[in-house]
């Protein structure tokens, strides 16, 4: 069987990058004594896949990973054993047992939800940002320069913004995150600040959900 599990990556760990997170999760799984599977080769590692890497600086409230297990384990048992083994700042929230041939979470991923809150001392400019929302959403294209490993190229942010609104003074966004289209949260903030005519404000960014193409959370299989 394989287990899909949901975990939180706390604010304290926002500076821990994806590779470091992978290593920490592998070590936690090793400590947990769960019947994990190892890759072949001279440096065997625990087979584990994440639905979507989380950028440094962002808190993850419902991150998702999947792991094949050599023996059946109940979701509750899995959650308890993993929970005990996780380092401070990583919290196991939910586990869902799946058949080995169930489609991978990574393949079902379509979009992600983000929340942006103003950092203390940045509240002044924040209102200008919120005020610029209607104008921003009215734009037909939002051109920007996309930086990738292979260089820079012009791109359009607008089609990747699936939903964007204000809620209790915070900014809520649903952004495309799939192989055809990706909109990044820091670019959203940058482009929005550009429209508002202000410097990019410091914000606490949280990824609150990973969604499939029907906008259901991935863990609702």
């Amino acid at each position: 069987m394989k287990m899909l599990f949901v975990f939180r990556k706390d604010k304290d760990l926002r500076f821990i990058g994806h590779l470091d997170l992978q290593r920490a999760m592998q070590r936690a799984l090793r400590r947990s004594g769960l019947p994990v599977s190892f890759s072949q080769g001279f440096n065997p590692h625990i087979i584990l896949s994440f639905a979507a890497p989380l950028a440094v600086g962002i808190t993850g409230e419902k991150e998702i990973a999947e792991i094949p297990l050599q023996l059946p384990v109940s979701p509750n048992d899995f959650l308890e054993r993993l929970g005990k083994a996780l380092p401070p700042g990583l919290i196991a929230l939910e586990a869902v047992g799946q058949k080995d041939d169930a489609p991978a979470a990574m393949a079902r991923l379509f979009a992600a939800q983000y929340t942006f809150a103003p950092r203390k001392g940045e509240e002044g400019d924040w209102q200008k940002l919120l005020d610029a929302l209607p104008a921003f959403l009215a734009r037909e294209t939002i051109p920007y320069i996309r930086r990738t490993k292979s260089g820079e190229r012009p791109d359009d942010l607008r089609p990747g913004i699936l939903n964007l609104l204000e809620k209790n003074g915070e900014l809520w966004a649903t952004l495309a995150l799939n192989q055809h289209m990706t909109a990044k949260p820091d670019q959203l903030l940058t482009s929005l600040a550009e429209t508002a005519g202000i410097p990019v404000p410091l914000a606490d960014t949280r990824r609150t959900a990973l969604l499939d193409d029907r906008f259901n959370p991935l863990e609702q299989v």
Binding site: P87, P88, R119
Partner: peptide
Amino acid sequence: EALLARVQRPARYVGGEL
């Protein structure tokens, strides 16, 4: 906080390890 966001490999300055 703001400084950590702009230095290389901030993970080495925050502690909190297992």
